[in-house]
Design a binder for these strands. Structure first.
Length: 466
RNA sequence: GGCGCGGUGGCAGAGUGGUUAUGCAGCGGACUGCAACUCCGUGUACGCCGGUUCGAUUCCGACCCGCGCCUCCA
């Protein structure tokens, strides 16, 4: 079965056809680095990471580009508030972002272009648009894109420019010819952050960097362009207008957009004060639990960040790790060695269907049941199945932890440290030997109250944080 | 107002024109000193109303409800 991808442009699932056989150029809109990444960013990062891992596992040569917006009004405003150079702020936030990514098991993209490193490319593209009469220099020396010159405007987000009029407004003093026009190059004064250009000192507008950098790194036409749920309009619409006007070529073949993250069933927003940064979330939950949570729904569905759902994610992962407990030293199977496995075939079928990670996880759970049955029977083949499970998990960036470490990590920190728990476990073992079951049960109850679960296995008592 | 998405069993969440999703929770059983883990069994789930069909949760239409975008936001 062939890979199918839902294309925002056509609003349909389409069979993926690469521009060059075996190769995929993919550009994903990254972060504006004026603050820490939040759980919504995490979703986009994890979703496209899982896709990239999967595509590579299937032999695709993926060139994954994800930009960093490191110059923008919000950045300048925040830097001014902090009374620091904007580049100090962005450097700090970029480091923080990389830290968050690593925690979530997100592999670095192949290229991570920054707007401030591509000012020349941006200026070149703006100049082309001015030369082509798709852009004009306004009285205030801003350069604007003239939306009315681009007939296809609104095609991606299925919007009719005339109907947009209703909500549009022109700020007093703006020099646009039309409210829909958007800024490509923003004029600034001598004392403001900016770069020289044919139109005077200025800085890039909000959308042009992605057009310039994607073209620079992936060519005038490339395969996949992705991003968050609020990007189709206006950001990606404007990118299309810019790039296609500048090059005269189709910009992108497949547009992919992740679904929204909600918090306790409300829109996540700063005004509602229900905004969670990745760092805050990771204080409460194991990073792999967060990753699993994000992959346990289809990437396009809205998901709800809530205590219940994260606890449930924890429980799901526990099932995997309990099965893998005795196979800590078993290496993940390479896909080559499991290519004839029925589970693998189902896994691929799920992932080929627009990256249905939830369905892929369901296949892995089926495998877990078989694995547990083999373990129970003491079958030597269990190790191979465990390796297969790890191999499938690795494609999604999951199950890479040491099982016992994960199981003892706990969703909430127990008040007892490991040695205190182990002392109590030993005490209980002694009580059991003396058939003092009342004492043994009271210790177990005490631990249970601390979130510690005991299991009396043949080899001795095991414990984990539940 | 315009455009779009969705309403699935207690919860989460896939999917399908007729046959088990899956996970968690529940119930019964096996195992256990008791548990936990695990396995086995167990749920007349598909918003409402019409239509198409031998048959619809799945297709079509209307309706109700929820959500997103239309403004900076992943």
């Amino acid at each position: 079965m062939a890979l199918k991808i839902y294309n925002t442009l056509t609003r349909k699932k389409e069979t993926f056809r690469p521009i060059q056989p075996g190769r995929i150029g993919m550009y994903v809109c990254g972060i504006t680095v004026y603050d820490y990444c939040h759980i919504g960013h995490a979703r986009v990062l994890v979703a496209f990471d899982a896709m990239t891992r999967y595509l590579r596992s299937q032999g695709w040569d993926v060139n994954y580009v994800r930009n960093i917006t490191d110059i923008d009004d919000k950045i300048l405003r925040r830097a001014a508030e902090n009374n620091e150079p904007f580049s100090d702020l962005t450097a700090r936030m970029i480091d923080a972002m990389h830290e968050d990514e690593r925690a979530l098991g997100v592999l670095p993209p192949d290229n991570e272009p920054r707007a401030t490193h591509h000012i020349d490319d941006i200026v070149d593209m703006v100049a082309t648009l001015v030369d082509n009469h798709y852009a004009y220099v306004a009285d205030n020396r801003d350069v604007y894109y003239q939306v009315s010159r681009f007939p296809d405007y609104g095609r991606l987000s299925n919007k009719n420019v005339d109907e947009l009029m209703v909500g549009a407004r022109v700020e007093p003093g703006e020099s646009k010819r039309d409210p829909h026009d958007f800024v490509l190059w923003k004029a600034v004064g001598e004392d403001e952050t900016g770069w020289p250009s044919p139109w005077g000192r200025g800085r890039p507008g909000w959308h042009i960097e992605c057009s310039a950098m994607s073209t620079c790194l992936l060519g005038e036409t490339f395969d996949i362009h992705g991003g968050g749920p609020d990007l189709p309009f206006p950001h990606h619409e404007n990118e299309i207008a810019q790039s296609e006007a500048a090059t005269g070529k189709t910009f992108v073949h497949y547009w992919m957009h992740a679904g929204a993250v909600r918090v306790d069933d409300e829109k996540m927003s700063k005004s509602l004060d229900n905004f969670f940064t990745i760092r805050e979330v990771l204080e409460k939950y194991h990073p792999e639990v967060v990753r699993y949570f994000l992959l346990s729904s289809h990437y396009r569905s809205p998901i709800n960040y809530s205590e219940d759902n994260l606890v449930e994610a924890r429980q799901g992962l526990e099932r995997f790790y309990l099965a893998l407990r005795d196979f800590a030293d078993v290496a993940p199977a390479t896909l080559e060695t499991i290519k004839s496995s029925a589970h693998y075939a189902q896994f691929i079928e799920a992932m080929d269907d627009d990256f249905n990670t939830r369905e892929a996880l369901a296949v892995m759970f089926d495998l877990v049941r078989e694995l547990n049955t083999l373990i129970q029977a003491g079958a030597p083949s269990a190790a191979a199945l465990a390796a297969e499970l790890k191999g499938l998990g690795a494609v999604l960036g999951l199950l890479g932890s040491a099982p016992e470490v994960f199981l003892r990590s706990g969703s909430r920190q127990s008040g007892l440290d490991d040695s205190a728990i182990e002392a109590l476990v030993r005490e209980r073992d002694d009580a059991k030997k003396n058939k003092d079951y009342a004492r043994a049960d009271s210790i177990r109850e005490q631990l249970s109250g601390q979130g510690v679960v005991l299991e009396d296995a043949r080899e001795g008592t095991r414990w984990r944080r539940g």
